Simulated assay, not measured.
Amino acid sequence: MELLADMVANRVADRLANQRRLLTRPELAEVINVSIPKLDTMIRDDEIPVIRVGRKVLFDPHAVIQHLATQA
């Protein structure tokens, strides 16, 4: 199972290699293939790294994927 998680993380990281921008909640939910309510739960439970700019919540996709890969 861990090998599969690593393979998925590497594939997603490769797809995002040329994108160095921050993502919104809907964009990140699509990238990591979870629903927005599930993403909100992950944010609330501090399961993923978050960047807060005022009231806006943004994500560095590389940091999120790396964090999820180490947690799997």
Rank of each mutant, 00 (worst) to 15 (best):
M1H: 14
M1L: 10
L3T: 13
L4S: 13
A5D: 12
A5L: 11
A5H: 14
D6K: 15
D6Q: 14
D6Y: 04
M7I: 13
M7N: 13
V8Q: 12
A9S: 12
N10K: 15
N10H: 11
R11E: 09
R11D: 11
V12M: 02
V12T: 09
A13N: 13
A13M: 15
D14H: 10
D14V: 10
D14A: 12
R15N: 08
R15I: 02
L16D: 06
L16H: 06
N18E: 14
N18W: 08
Q19D: 15
Q19L: 15
R20D: 11
R20M: 01
R21C: 03
R21A: 10
L22E: 13
L23P: 06
L23Q: 01
R25A: 12
P26W: 03
P26L: 02
E27H: 04
E27A: 08
E27M: 01
E30V: 12
E30S: 10
E30L: 10
V31G: 01
V31I: 08
V31W: 02
N33Q: 14
N33M: 11
V34Q: 01
V34G: 01
V34P: 01
V34H: 00
S35F: 09
I36W: 00
I36D: 04
P37I: 07
P37Q: 04
K38S: 07
K38R: 12
K38Y: 09
L39A: 02
L39M: 08
L39C: 05
D40M: 00
D40I: 04
T41Y: 09
T41K: 14
M42S: 02
M42Q: 10
M42W: 09
I43N: 04
I43T: 10
I43Y: 00
R44V: 10
R44M: 12
R44E: 13
R44W: 05
D46P: 03
D46Q: 15
D46N: 15
E47G: 06
E47P: 00
I48R: 06
I48C: 02
P49N: 01
V50W: 03
V50P: 07
I51A: 02
I51N: 00
I51W: 01
G54Q: 04
G54I: 09
R55E: 09
K56I: 13
V57A: 05
V57K: 09
L58E: 05
L58R: 11
L58D: 09
F59W: 06
D60T: 00
P61E: 04
H62W: 01
H62Q: 14
A63K: 09
V64S: 06
V64E: 03
L68R: 04
L68C: 04
L68P: 01
A69V: 00
A69K: 13
A69P: 02
A69C: 07
T70G: 08
T70Q: 15
T70D: 14
Q71E: 14
Q71N: 10
A72F: 05
A72I: 01
A72T: 03
A72G: 10
